[in-house]
Amino acid sequence: MFPIREGFLLSGVLFTLGVIGVLVRRNLLFVLMSIEVMLNAAGLAFVAAGARWGQPDGQVVFLFILAMAAAEVSVGLALVLELYHQYKSLDTDAISRMRG
């Protein structure tokens, strides 16, 4: 029997960690990684939920999430390269020309 409650709790903790990572890291690469953590935490939650109802759907969605996360990150990395090209830095706080 899959421990559903604990599964949700774990995914919640992971998700929170991911959020904290996004908030505290200034390096764009680490931000992207933290987002991966968040997405995967959500995926875990789906798996846990699927296990609760004995359905494969949760895991199917997890695959979706994995695929989309990969797509996001690939676009993200392209932008990271361009960012580094222009700013010679990956500090997210530096890219704040637009404000107000």
Binding site: V22, R26, D93, S96, R97, G100
Partner: peptide, 17 residues
């Protein structure tokens, strides 16, 4: 209000969170 629009990514993420 416009002081909240700092242009900083992490601050924005904090708003969403």
């Amino acid at each position: 209000l416009s002081a909240t629009e700092t242009g900083k990514l992490r601050w924005y993420a904090a708003w969403i969170a």
